[in-house]
Amino acid sequence: MGPLSLAMAELDEKRVLELVKMALLEGKSPLEIVEECRRGLKVVGERYSWGEYFLSDLIMSAEIFQEVLRVLEPYLPIALPLAEQPHKADIVFGTVEGDIHDIGKNITISLLRCEGFRVYDAGVDIPPDVFVTLLKETGAKVLALSALLTSSFEAMRRTVQLVRMMTAKQPVRIIIGGLVNERVCRYVGADAWVREAGEGVAICRRWLGMRVVKGQAGGLGAL
């Protein structure tokens, strides 16, 4: 692992940004820089999964990566989605109607974007029909529904039912996150459930495939 990956893994914000700027001056390609950061992010995810890192570290790593992308943006031939909303998306992500909690959603979206997925952040308290419209407009293949309140499971169920009915020609896989389990998943009719942001990313990777491929412009385009 190079010094940039290492600094990323150690969540050393100042050093990461210094190294990124230095690498640009040395003429390194932005793509290589992103790839090095991602290698560091992978370590962050691993450390979180075995309990060495905590939520605060996960949030910090996503924040640093977003800053790196901001630094790199002018050097890239194509526009990065960063935190802006993509017109076409792989994933539509929102908190269901009646629930305004967004921390879990935001962490997961940051991690998904770090992985190169185009995520449309629908926001919080989103009625079922808005999800349907967003899926059609963005062409997304995955719908991620978040809720913190157990009383929001009804809204999840209504959303899943409406999406299944209205998007028959555009098969959408639905993942739910929050304080959910197998029982809730079956009740609302989703395809998968997760309690952890990292698990959600892994499932999206399985459903949609890897995004950023080293050295391929096409991979970067998807970023």
């Binding site: 914000e13 605060s56 949030i59 921390i103 935001n106």
Partner: peptide, 11 residues
């Protein structure tokens, strides 16, 4: 806020 304070721990 949650994100604010968790980032403050390092910044």
């Amino acid at each position: 806020g949650t994100k604010g304070i968790l980032l403050d721990l390092r910044r």
